[in-house]
Design a protein around this nucleic acid. Structure first.
Lengths: 258, 258
DNA sequence: TTTGCTAGCTTGTTATAACAAGTCTAATTT
DNA sequence: AAATTAGACTTGTTATAACAAGCTAGCAAA
């Protein structure tokens, strides 16, 4: 039960990050410097850095070095207008751009058919860019009449921004939130390393008159995004004190999302 | 821009897992077998396995081998009774046990004081065991009069089980959900590897007459737990179709949590 | 029969070595 | 002065090697 060298070193470096010796954005010692300072081989030095990477404390840039990661996150609010909107994210000083990869009418998988209660729907696959940087991969199924009517807008904006604009207010929302780790394909799309933590938001939105109108899955970078929920038994709409804790201050986010 | 060997191998093994060649619980080829099959060094073979571990596809057991991971998750529902309860998890065939590490009256940090509107509160740190296996680390601040009155029960059950039992129904709930990665301390408590994905639930619960009564943070294993939310503008209480998608069938979960 | 030990499997840790490739700066060339 | 190039950094990939330590099955001793 010996304490591994690489862990001893990464814990020591971790302490320096947490106590402020290395600040957000600072460069850590290079592999060679670690080899010298702790008198270890390169394998061990790299393993120590790898430990920090896995904890999300640092990011590595080939040819440049290892840098202390910034921790601020952008908040998706799924509370009151019952869905998140561009406007809500804009409040956090972040501009969202939609890059539609796929937008076509398809025969939906049976699970989705059971939810939307139709066998044909529009399938949209898109990448959301936040201040120009990819942060979310989204796959959404939309009722055919809505997809057809609003295609042009849906291609350019977030789904619910379009729907709200056309007077479709969501009356009910079912969602699950979980986390996963990036496989190779997703790691390429979101420009992260293999195994990077991701936060998955799976949802179904309903209106009183049409039933389920949208069903989809959003996969966002776990290091940059979080969800906030506010449920109030009395007032069904309440925007106060939602996600203030993790909100990014305007000044900080430009550097936060480099 | 060459495609790394280790990635080529891990992608190939990944395909075998996804197409069912290796099933849930099966053993993958050992490092030596991979070295032979793909004609690579041990470093590369280990790196390939490490890639799969990082994607959450396999778990490694020293002295035994590499095994395909089980993917089913237990769902915390934060929808209608406004908080999750033991009863709700029991529906999924999982028994929750509470292991209280700390239960004491403390001077709260200023952020918490601002929320609870008092400077002294009970601090409870606990580990939640699911079918006897650690799955969640929880830190909760509770109003002093409640902590004092219900200490015995709070030590043994989930917080809201106790509160509901004494007629304290939650009227409002603010929460954020995000994911992080295990640091060394948490990795020991939850018996996972360093950097293991975790899902963090930070919440404040309110009652109409007392205001904020509980504020806390739950850190669960991201590979075993997810959250479900259901918001309905009309009916403020509705248990139907919550988290059915990720619900574990009774038969499956015993093996799912070994 | 039961216990205990050993041999051979497994993964974990660490060292040395070499080459590839991205980044930056400073010297050189145009 | 501007553009190019070279060199000295950085991290990335891969190989060989050795020892430690957890697990299991089979053999031997009690």
């Amino acid at each position: 039960m010996t304490f591994p060298l690489h862990l001893a070193i990464s814990e020591q470096l971790r302490d320096r990050i947490l106590d402020g010796s290395y600040r957000s954005g600072d460069r850590l010692p290079s592999e060679h410097q670690i080899m010298a300072e702790f008198a270890v081989s390169r394998i061990t030095a790299r393993r120590a850095i790898s430990n920090l990477t896995q904890q999300g404390l640092v990011t590595v840039q080939k040819g440049k070095g290892v840098f202390v990661a910034t921790q601020q996150k952008v908040t998706y609010s799924i509370s009151s207008p019952l869905t998140f909107l561009e406007a809500d994210i804009a409040l956090q000083g972040v501009t969202v751009t939609v890059q539609t990869l796929v937008f076509e009418s398809v025969t939906v998988p049976i699970e989705v058919a059971a939810i939307l209660k139709c066998s044909i729907a529009y399938l949209q696959k898109k990448v959301l860019l936040f201040n120009g940087i990819p942060g979310c991969v989204d796959v959404t199924y939309i009722l055919p009449e809505l997809g057809k009517a609003y295609e042009a807008e849906l291609r350019e904006q977030m789904t619910f921004t379009t729907l709200e604009r056309h007077g479709m207010t969501i009356d009910k929302l079912d969602a699950t939130i979980e986390c996963t780790q990036a496989d190779y394909e997703t790691s390429e799309q979101l420009e992260v390393t293999l195994g990077h933590p991701l936060i998955v938001y799976r949802h179904t939105a309903y209106t009183d008159d049409r039933g389920a109108i949208v069903h989809g899955e959003s996969i966002s970078r776990g290091d940059r995004f979080c969800y906030s929920v506010s449920i109030d038994r009395n007032r069904s709409r309440d925007l106060s004190s939602i996600g203030t804790k993790n909100r990014v201050k305007d000044s900080e986010l430009l550097e936060s999302l480099y």
